[in-house]
Simulated assay, not measured.
Amino acid sequence: MTGKTHIIGGIAACVVTTRFTSYDPLLLTAAGIFGALLPDICHSGSKIGRKVPLLSKLVSTLFGHRTFTHSLLFLLLIQVLFSLFHLPEEITTGVLVGATSHLLLDAATKNGIKLLYPLQMTFRLPLTVRTGGPAENGILAVLVLLVVYFGQGII
């Protein structure tokens, strides 16, 4: 998926999450946007990869694209690191919700993800789309509708 779809996916996931929690919606959503972009640190052409090119190149060299940073192990690492720094729960939850939305969206592409990394099994949803294609635009539209529907009255 493209960066804009990941951003809207992270926002949608966080807006829905705020309906079931008492978290500050702005803090949760800001963290969710970061989390929605974070797994693509392994791709130098991604939105986040262009912001920190040296880190992106290092992660890409060590792991490749859509492996470690697109896995449950990566989500666990985020949880552990954020708990060590005693960050507000909204930030940790937002980053995890955003990153999870990223994994789910990339699992809906033909290339899939290595969800159980270091195992090399590729995980993909039964229905897949081509990144940047018309079906992705349809997914983007549905995500925007979710944001509008669930976001009413939050702010």
Rank of each mutant, 00 (worst) to 15 (best):
Ile8Cys: 09
Gly9Gln: 02
Gly9Lys: 01
Gly9Trp: 04
Gly10Asn: 08
Ile11Ala: 10
Ile11Tyr: 07
Ile11Met: 14
Ile11Thr: 08
Ala12Ile: 09
Ala12Asp: 11
Ala12Asn: 07
Cys14Leu: 06
Val15Arg: 10
Val16Lys: 11
Val16Gly: 06
Thr17Ala: 14
Thr17Ile: 04
Thr17Gln: 08
Thr21Pro: 06
Ser22Gln: 14
Tyr23Asp: 02
Tyr23Arg: 03
Tyr23Leu: 13
Asp24Ile: 01
Leu27Tyr: 03
Leu28Val: 01
Thr29Pro: 11
Ala30Tyr: 05
Ala31Cys: 05
Ala31Leu: 04
Ala31Ser: 13
Gly32Lys: 02
Ile33Met: 02
Ile33Ala: 01
Ile33Gly: 02
Phe34Glu: 04
Phe34Tyr: 13
Gly35Cys: 03
Gly35Arg: 03
Gly35Asp: 08
Ala36Lys: 13
Leu37Thr: 05
Leu37Cys: 08
Leu37His: 07
Leu38Phe: 14
Leu38Cys: 11
Pro39Ile: 06
Pro39Met: 06
Asp40Ser: 12
Cys42His: 15
His43Ser: 05
Gly45Val: 06
Gly45Thr: 14
Gly45Arg: 15
Ser46Ile: 10
Ser46Gln: 07
Ser46Pro: 07
Arg50Leu: 15
Pro53Ala: 10
Pro53Cys: 09
Ser56Lys: 09
Ser56Cys: 05
Leu58Val: 14
Leu58Ile: 15
Leu58Asn: 05
Leu58Gln: 08
Val59Ala: 08
Ser60Ala: 15
Ser60Lys: 11
Thr61Trp: 14
Thr61Val: 05
Leu62Met: 13
Phe63Trp: 14
Gly64Tyr: 06
His65Pro: 07
Arg66Glu: 13
Thr67Asp: 03
Phe68Leu: 14
Phe68Ile: 09
Ser71Met: 06
Leu73Trp: 09
Leu73Glu: 07
Phe74Cys: 10
Phe74Val: 09
Leu75Thr: 10
Leu76Lys: 05
Leu77Ile: 14
Leu77Trp: 14
Leu77Cys: 13
Leu77Lys: 03
Ile78Asn: 02
Ile78Ser: 02
Ile78Arg: 04
Val80Trp: 02
Val80Arg: 01
Leu81Tyr: 03
Leu81Cys: 12
Ser83Gln: 13
Ser83His: 11
Phe85Leu: 15
Phe85Met: 13
Leu87Thr: 06
Pro88Gly: 08
Glu89His: 07
Glu89Thr: 09
Glu89Gln: 12
Glu90Gln: 11
Glu90Ile: 01
Ile91Gly: 03
Thr92Met: 12
Thr93Leu: 08
Thr93Phe: 05
Gly94Gln: 07
Gly94Ala: 04
Val95Lys: 00
Val95Met: 01
Val95Tyr: 00
Ala99Gly: 04
Ala99Ile: 01
Thr100Tyr: 01
Thr100Ile: 02
Thr100Phe: 07
Ser101Ala: 15
Leu103Ser: 02
